[in-house]
C-alpha cells in the first residue's frame, strides 16, 4: 500500500517536475541571483561578482544607478588601460549606503581606485541595507559555491516571478530597470523618446536644502575609510538634463560641489564635475539617467579631467 502510494506520488509529480524543469531550463539565462536582500540589483551584482569577478579588481565602480547606468565601461577601460575593472553599481546604493556596501567589496576585491558616480539625488534617498542584508551579502561573497546562496535563500515564488521579469530586465535596454550588464558590469540604458516615462523625465531637481546632512556624513566616512586603506576615491558628479537646468540647479551644484570638495580635498580624493558644459535632453532617459551615448560622453568628459591612472 505504502509503496503503491509513493509510486503514485512520483508518477503524478513527474509532469509537474518536468514542466517546472523545462520552464526553468528554457529561461535559464534569466534565472535570478539568490535573494540575499530585497534589492534585486544588489543581489544580481553580488552574485555576478561571486561567479565571474572574484579574482579582484584594480578599479572598482560603486554607487547607485548613477554608476550602473551613467558610468560607461568603454571610456573607463580606455583610461585605465589593461587594468581589471568591475562596475558594482546597483540601484539604491546612494551616498548613505556606500559605507555599508563598499567595505565588503573593497576587502575582497582589493582595488586601488574606486569610481563613484553621484547625483545630488543620492544625497536624498537610497535603499538602506539592514544588518541581515549585509550579513547575507558577506556570506554569499565568501561562499565556496555560488549555488549555496539558493540553499540559504529558499523562496521558490521569488525565483519564478523574477525569472519572468528578468527576461525584460536583461534584454530590453529601453526599460528603466535594465540589467543587461556589459563585461565589467555597467548597464547602459537606451530608452527611446516615445518610451520615456513623463514623470521621471520631468522630475524637477531638488534644492540644496533637501540634501541630507546624515548622507553627507556617511559619505565622508566612506571617503575616510578608503583613504585609510590607500584606495583613491574618484567621484564623478552626474548632471541633470539641459531642459531642467536653470540658475537654481547651477546654485545646487555649486553648493553641493563645495560640500564634496570639503570632504574629498583633505583626503586627496578628486571630484570630477560635468557642469562646465550643457548636457542635451536627447542624451537622457529621464531627468538624471543618461542613455548609452550620454553615458559614454559623460564618462569620457569626467575621466579626461583625471591626469594620472
Amino acid at each position: 500500500m505504502l509503496r503503491k502510494f509513493l509510486l503514485q506520488c512520483l508518477v503524478l509529480a513527474l509532469p509537474i517536475a518536468v514542466g517546472l524543469g523545462a520552464y526553468t531550463w528554457w529561461n535559464r539565462a534569466y534565472f535570478p541571483a539568490p535573494r540575499l536582500t530585497p534589492n534585486i540589483a544588489v543581489n544580481e551584482k553580488v552574485d555576478r561578482i561571486v561567479r565571474h569577478q572574484r579574482d579582484g579588481a584594480d578599479v572598482l565602480a560603486l554607487g547607485s544607478s548613477m554608476s550602473l547606468n551613467n558610468l560607461a565601461s568603454t571610456p573607463v577601460l580606455a583610461h585605465f588601460n589593461g587594468q581589471r575593472y568591475v562596475n558594482a553599481g546597483a540601484w539604491g546604493i546612494g551616498a548613505g549606503e556606500l559605507i555599508q556596501f563598499g567595505p565588503m567589496l573593497v576587502e575582497r576585491l582589493k582595488p586601488h581606485t574606486m569610481l563613484v558616480a553621484l547625483s545630488p539625488l543620492d544625497f536624498i534617498k537610497g535603499s538602506r541595507l539592514s544588518p541581515q542584508d549585509s550579513a547575507a551579502i558577506v556570506r554569499h561573497l565568501d561562499a565556496p559555491k555560488p549555488a549555496v546562496g539558493y540553499v540559504r535563500h529558499r523562496e521558490a515564488a521569488y525565483y519564478l516571478r523574477q525569472m519572468e521579469l528578468h527576461r525584460i530586465r536583461f534584454d530590453d535596454p529601453g526599460n528603466y530597470e535594465y540589467l543587461g550588464y556589459d563585461g565589467p558590469g555597467a548597464a547602459l540604458l537606451e530608452v527611446p523618446a516615445d518610451r520615456r516615462e513623463p514623470g521621471r523625465y520631468a522630475e524637477v531637481p531638488p534644492t540644496y536644502d533637501k540634501l541630507k546632512q546624515e548622507r553627507y556624513e556617511a559619505f565622508a566616512r566612506f571617503a575616510r575609510y578608503l583613504a585609510e586603506r590607500g584606495v583613491r576615491l574618484v567621484v564623478l558628479s552626474s548632471p541633470f538634463r539641459e531642459g531642467l537646468t536653470n540658475e537654481a540647479v547651477h546654485e545646487l551644484f555649486r553648493q553641493h560641489h563645495a560640500r564634496l570638495h570639503g570632504i574629498l580635498d583633505p583626503l586627496g580624493h578628486p571630484l570630477l564635475t560635468a557642469d562646465d558644459r550643457s548636457w542635451p535632453d536627447a542624451l537622457y532617459a529621464d531627468a538624471s539617467h543618461l542613455n548609452r551615448d550620454g553615458a559614454e560622453a559623460f564618462t569620457a568628459h569626467c575621466l579626461a579631467q583625471l591626469k594620472d591612472r
Binding site: 514542466g19 517546472l20 521569488y158 519564478l160 516571478r161
Partner: peptide, 9 residues
C-alpha cells in the same frame, strides 16, 4: 499555484 504564487507570500 505555479503561475500566480506571488513573491514573498
Amino acid at each position: 499555484i505555479v503561475a500566480f504564487a506571488p513573491m514573498g507570500g
